[in-house]
Amino acid sequence: MDDSILLGGAAHAFRLIASGDARVYEAAFTSIWISCTATAFASAIGLPLGFFTAIGRFKGRVLLVAILNTLLALPTVIVGLFVYALIRRVSLLGPLDLLFSPGAMIVGQTFLAIPIVAALCLTAIETLDPAARETAFTLGASRKRLLLTVAWEARHGLLVAVAVAGGRLIGEVGVSMMLGGNITHYTRTLTTAIALETSKGEFAVAMAMGLILLALALGLNLLLRWIQGMRGGRLG
């Protein structure tokens, strides 16, 4: 391993952050808002999906669980291809002119994250102590009340589901590259910028951006932990 890449990268990262390098801040900002928006959409769809798969009693439940878990293996490029086929200008959603825009990236990342959120939510609820549910039942809790109880009991797991999805999205390249197009000042995220700088042979810059990306992910995770701790402290 060439240490000029590692050490140079670390040094370069500090320089870029300290000097307020516009390219890096812009890409970081794009990464954050796109991934956060997509995580929000994916949670809005994935959490209910996981929830009802976990507690529902319906035909094909086992199959749905298997499908959700299988979709965790989905390569980002395939998600990109799938969404590309949906939104390219000659297709169904073509008139929206989404391709190569932040909107396209959000749609793609949402699809990528839905199975993650749903599968982890499902696991979080399935691994709950069934006694809690039983108790609520015997106490004569209404259905709505029961759902809230289960959600509350599983809150840590649900938060983890959202955090994992967010982490996955902020670090993914395939969807962003394919649907966003890595356009300067528009759809360039930290990850696509890293891919670009690497292809240009600017290894130190790429490594620096990678370190900044990791720092961002750490920040987001600490924030979530903090929310978790705060909630837990206040309520129980």
Binding site: F41, L96, D97, L98, S101, G103, I106, V107
Partner: peptide, 11 residues
């Protein structure tokens, strides 16, 4: 509606 929002807020 999300897709619609994205499409108007994007380009």
């Amino acid at each position: 509606s999300a897709i619609w929002l994205l499409s108007i807020s994007g380009p």
